[in-house]
């Protein structure tokens, strides 16, 4: 599903939900649409183990039955692993998203020397300024407060990044910023290798989303709770 875009994925689920006979609610009006919200769009080229969408239903079978019904309608490469009931007053998935975990690996033929060291140095910086271009403007953004965690292990990077409407940081932005660390002796080689990847062969970078979280704490003291844990099994 790596090559299916977000909008196509939404359409895919709208149809799958109809095929599976989920009693989804429709909006009123001339062109009624399913009441459905995706937590966070996944770009083309990314893979994931932790995607969420929430829907409003008129009635529901049990979690187990619904998962089975949905999985009978899935294409190879997509699996529904959980189906849970959210509290009546829950906000939609899109608006509760606060963070996401990613695993970044590199194609077999690519090796980045001393990736751990680069990661450590990178996180020791007080601020990580990047220029972010949008359609309308260009601005300098500090990535540091949006990186909740970053570590390297066996040529693989794991990161937890701010996600959602309030603050949003993409893994590629972190990689681009890491590739800027060419100034210091210890990190020069690794940063250069990373830069080559980002610029020349971005397809060799495998970005995999692991989990999406909501914040059940406060703004200053966030507590990241996997979206799944915000709901309960229907039995």
């Amino acid at each position: 599903m790596k090559f299916v875009g977000h909008l196509d994925m939404m359409r895919y689920f709208q149809k799958a939900i109809r095929r599976a006979g989920i009693d989804i609610a429709y909006s009123a009006g001339y062109s009624p649409h399913q009441i459905m919200s995706f937590a966070s769009p996944l770009g083309v080229g990314l893979t994931s183990d932790g995607e969420y969408l929430d829907i409003e239903v008129n009635s529901s079978k049990t979690s187990e039955e619904s998962i089975a019904a949905l999985n009978r309608e899935m294409a190879e490469g997509v699996e529904v692993v959980s189906y849970r009931k959210l509290p009546e007053d829950a906000k939609n998935a899109m608006s509760v998203v606060a963070a996401a975990d990613y695993r970044i690996s590199f194609s077999e033929e690519v090796a980045i020397p001393s990736l751990e060291q680069l990661t450590e140095r990178f996180m020791m910086q007080k601020e990580i300024l990047i220029t972010k271009k949008t359609k309308k403007s260009e601005g300098v953004v500090d990535l540091k407060p949006m990186i909740y965690g970053l570590r390297a292990k066996n040529d693989t990077l794991f990161m937890r990044l701010a996600t959602g409407s309030a603050a949003n940081c993409k893994p590629i932005h972190v990689l681009e910023a890491m590739a800027e660390m060419k100034g210091q002796e210890e990190t020069r080689e690794a940063a250069a290798a990373l830069e080559k990847l980002v610029v020349r062969t971005p397809y060799a970078i495998c970005i995999h989303r692991l989990q999406i979280y909501g914040n059940t704490g406060s703004g200053d003291a966030p507590v990241f709770t996997a979206l799944e844990d915000l709901g309960e099994e229907i039995v």
């Binding site: 790596k2 090559f3 299916v4 875009g5 196509d8 895919y12 149809k15 799958a16 095929r19 083309v44 080229g45 309608e73 294409a75 190879e76 490469g77 062969t201 971005p202 397809y203 060799a204």
Partner: peptide
Amino acid sequence: MNRLALSDEILLKIDKPARYIGNEIN
């Protein structure tokens, strides 16, 4: 997953890569 005829490199370079991957419902 089924094997794809085109490499990731190509698929990420072109417009609407899902045109070429098959595996559609039905």
